[in-house]
Design a protein around this nucleic acid. Sequence first.
DNA 1: GCTTCACTTTAGTCTCTACTAATATAATCG
DNA 2: CGATTATATTAGTAGAGACTAAAGTGAAGC
Lengths: 108, 108
Amino acid sequence: MHAFEVLRDPVRRRILELLADGERASGAVAEVIGREFAITQPAVSQHLKVLRDNGFASTRVDGARRIYAVDTSPLRDVDAWLERFRRFWEPKLDTLAAEVARGKRTRT
Amino acid sequence: MHAFEVLRDPVRRRILELLADGERASGAVAEVIGREFAITQPAVSQHLKVLRDNGFASTRVDGARRIYAVDTSPLRDVDAWLERFRRFWEPKLDTLAAEVARGKRTRT
DNA sequence: GCTTCACTTTAGTCTCTACTAATATAATCG
DNA sequence: CGATTATATTAGTAGAGACTAAAGTGAAGC
């Protein structure tokens, strides 16, 4: 599944925002998301599965809990796709700045 | 419609890539896309409409032709959303470089 | 060892969307 | 004007996917 298809769903985007602030147990995510979007715990679990299956999140077992952490590699793909459009809104960067902005390391 | 919902479709992403290289008539887009994705002209026209309606493209009339140009403002929203995740893959930039990378103008 | 808690998986439904075929509109050309 | 070219719109359909309810799995507590 393509990164943009995963990110299409507002619930999944919100889950990633939560995880960006630090890892959380499935139940903790379900509690917040369930409240914000009025969906059930299984629904949240299904979204977590999509995120897992597509490399957006990883899990760690802690007793009966599953701790989720964000994995940003697919987001980098999105960032890379945007690359070709950035010149439309970052037109005036000089060469060095452009290099840096493009993520090309300037020193080790 | 949210930017990610628009970008979810690979056809629409490809159209934006084409338009990023320069404006094109609807028919020219339909010709390339129709060949690459094996879909009809009306299907491409419908995708162009979605892009128009959501601010990803603008049109100019040229006789019987409609010339499409990319409009990147919604892509900037995507870029902005990615912002909070960038620290995961751009951890070592010094302050100045980070400012530049973030698009905050350093002069003027 | 049974009950409870934390979470996932499955089955079924309903809505949404991308598509084709057909039709409409509107400019150009003979 | 009538035919053709360029493009958009409409109607209808099939498939995808997000949800709920219910059932399954497995660790923890008494």
